[in-house]
Design a protein around this nucleic acid. Structure first.
Lengths: 199, 199
DNA sequence: GAACTTATTGCACATCTGTTCAATAGGACT
DNA sequence: AGTCCTATTGAACAGATGTGCAATAAGTTC
């Protein structure tokens, strides 16, 4: 095995990279739905046939650009998980703290997506991934009160995304640390309310 | 004021209704991004110019179709709010119970949107609306612990949407009552965990 | 380096898109 | 009823779209 034969052909890599880069550049000026394939290949200085060789819709191209970001998100979530055996609330918070760091790292890309209306693709995929991760936590620590695992996983995944999306739309006026602090405060607030109610 | 002059011209109403109906019908067979304006006007039996007279993109047409659903959502949320002066957790839960009823009522439409990739528009608008409603609750009842109102509002809005979206993707195998019950259980679970941790 | 493989190119094509225009039909108001 | 107003229509247009194909350039493998 002399060469990197399991990698893609260098021409493909270059073409795809140029297409992604062009799409992202154009998205800074135009709304996604107004961007044409011709726009993309002209900016990338490629033939239109090259685009259609690899993708069918511009949506597919964007998905691929998102893939790298999602990979980093998952890494960020998993990082603080090193054989910790504490309560779920602590796991959740320490994990999500790292996620806020990840979002801050890609804040340009996230802002771009939120501004354009393609947010949905990102949103859906992020929540799906977060849900999977939360589900893994839950299966290790069985649930009380007949809680539906899928529902609580979606609940928590989307709740966190809600804070993230709020943060992005505020143009990142808060620090990642503040975001993490706020998440903890919200969780404790729920506890306080419920405790108050039950006395 | 003899006639309904504040209503739209009957021709416009008919054209728009036909376009919306056609779009929704086509969406049951095709992916949204593959639907052309020509598809829509042919199904609606209208001239292409008529579409462009009222809309610029098919996305706008869909947005308008969503508007009716959003209106009902807001009504559903507000309905159980009749001068109740209880704790936030009770307000939240009784309100969201009505929201589950609303989603069940429009389950066909919701399923359609979730299946197609236009979910984002619905998702964004629903979360925006829920957030506004939660914010109104919060301002009436000042926050402890320096909680950021926008963040907790987005947190809760998206958390609830997470459950809703999970429900839709399960093809509504649960009843609305079960969904409401689950929300309460999740909130109590948070309380239990935190209480346990603080002792 | 030579032989093999395949991505990219440029061109051509039918179809679709978004827009204009004058003509007509339909609705609003007195 | 009649008058005014404007939504809809059909046709026509330049430009964009998605798809082929043979020629060429570039990468891979030995």
């Amino acid at each position: 095995m002399s060469t990197k034969s399991f990698y893609q052909d260098r021409r493909i890599r270059k073409s795809k990279a140029a297409l992604k880069e062009s799409l992202i550049a154009i998205m800074k000026e135009k709304d996604f739905k107004e961007i044409s394939i011709t726009d993309i290949v002209q900016t990338a200085d490629l033939n239109r046939g090259t685009f259609y060789k690899h993708y069918q819709y511009k949506e597919e191209l964007l998905e691929e650009a998102i893939d790298d970001v999602i990979k980093d998100l998952i890494d960020s979530y998993r990082e603080p998980y090193q054989g910790v055996e504490v309560l779920i609330i602590n796991k959740l918070s320490s994990s999500t703290i790292k996620i806020f760091d990840h979002v801050e790292k890609y804040s340009n890309f996230y802002s771009l997506l939120v501004k354009s209306n393609v947010l949905f693709e990102l949103q859906k995929r992020i929540c799906d991934e977060l849900k999977k991760l939360v589900l893994q936590d839950i299966t290790n620590q069985p649930l009380q009160h007949n809680i539906n695992a899928n529902l609580i996983a979606s609940y928590q995944a989307n709740a966190i995304w809600g804070m993230i999306s709020e943060w992005i739309q505020s143009e990142f006026i808060y620090s990642a640390a503040y975001m993490a602090e706020q998440l903890l405060a919200i969780l404790h607030l729920n506890s306080a309310k419920n405790t108050y109610r039950e006395t």
